[in-house]
Write a protein that binds this DNA or RNA. Structure first.
Length: 307
DNA sequence: ATGCAGGGACGAT
DNA sequence: ATCGTCCCTGCA
């Protein structure tokens, strides 16, 4: 049994995480830089992230991880949730290590974790992610926050919270386009409206099965198989979800081409996507999403991407 | 300079 | 089931 992680509260807005086997390897920087979250920025001695209407600050003090939250409401619970500190990662890593390659990745990047995003923010973020790249996504989301979010001053710095679906759903498509969204503006508005009008019930999606939640997401304009899987994995606790983007497709084509049955190309058709994603789930197991994150991070590392 | 790729999805064939 | 198109930016 691993020991339970305790978040110790110091002052009113800080905790220090005590040393533990689980936390020694945990690296918020690696996780933040693994392409799953977009609205984090690094300053001289801290990281700041936008999580819905909250600002998360992360820094290190004497080798200890320190988190702060603005506002400080339910800090411990939220920090725990965002970094999935209650996941039994040792068991998970063991379970996804089906072959020498994954085993190598897990030992190479022991600090990498999945993060749990706010569902609304995650949906909007990945709707913006279609056919573009990470720097562009960051730019779009930052523009949305600046235009539609609330200005917050924390730590003497100015931030903008992530706008609610209610606000985005009432924005005009042309105003959304002005945030650099391009043709995605229509999809952002549609997704926001789907949330506020009850088409997407986030609590239900969290509770229900992967298949059911995915079929609900796919009904929304702008959400296809890949983006649905990202939303499911990063915000709806469906850890078996295995999103396949161009990078994962490359990794699979070179290392796991047998998963596709016959020859696998780097471009997947709709039917191939479903088939390969399911095969990956079968192979890596119920935590396939964690395996995906290691593959993705590895591919981006090798490509020398910095973001 | 034109082309192309970058966390895809939609709509018409 | 394929295929052209969609907005935008950086880079060769």
């Amino acid at each position: 049994m691993r020991e339970k992680v305790q978040l110790v509260r110091i002052l009113d807005v800080k905790w220090i995480l005590p040393q533990s086997p689980v936390l020694e390897s945990f690296s918020p920087e690696v996780s933040i830089n693994s392409g799953q979250v977009f609205l984090w920025e690094k300053t001289a001695n801290a990281w700041y992230g936008i999580h819905a209407d909250k600002i998360i600050k992360f820094s290190r003090s004497n080798g200890t991880l320190v988190f702060e939250l603005f506002p400080e409401y339910r800090q411990e619970e939220i920090v725990r949730s965002i970094f999935r500190l209650d996941d039994d990662v040792e068991a998970i890593f063991a379970e996804i290590s089906k072959d020498a390659f994954v085993r190598k990745l897990v030992s190479s990047y022991p600090g990498l974790r999945l993060m749990r995003q706010d569902p609304e923010q995650c949906i909007i973020s990945f709707v913006c992610a279609s056919n573009t790249n990470v720097p562009m996504i960051k730019r779009m989301l930052a523009a949305l926050s600046k235009r539609y979010g609330q200005k917050v001053v924390a730590d003497g710095r100015e931030f903008h919270t992530f706008p609610s679906a209610f606000v985005l759903g009432r924005a005009s498509e042309s105003d959304l386009r002005a945030c650099g969204l391009g043709y995605r503006a229509k999809a952002v508005k549609a997704a926001a409206c789907a949330i506020t009008e009850g088409m997407l019930e986030l609590d239900y999606l969290k509770r229900t099965s992967y298949d059911e939640a995915k079929s609900e997401l796919l009904k929304v304009y702008g959400i296809g198989p890949k983006i649905a899987d990202c939303i499911l994995l990063f915000s709806l606790d469906k850890l078996s979800a295995f999103p396949i983007d161009v990078w994962i497709a490359r990794a699979l084509a070179t290392r796991y081409s047998w998963l596709a049955g016959k020859k696998m190309s780097e471009k997947l058709t709709g039917h191939q996507y479903a088939q390969v994603s399911k095969a990956a789930h079968m192979y890596f197991g119920r935590y396939a999403g964690y395996a995906q994150q290691f593959l993705y991070y590895h591919m981006r590392q090798n490509a020398g991407k910095k973001w």
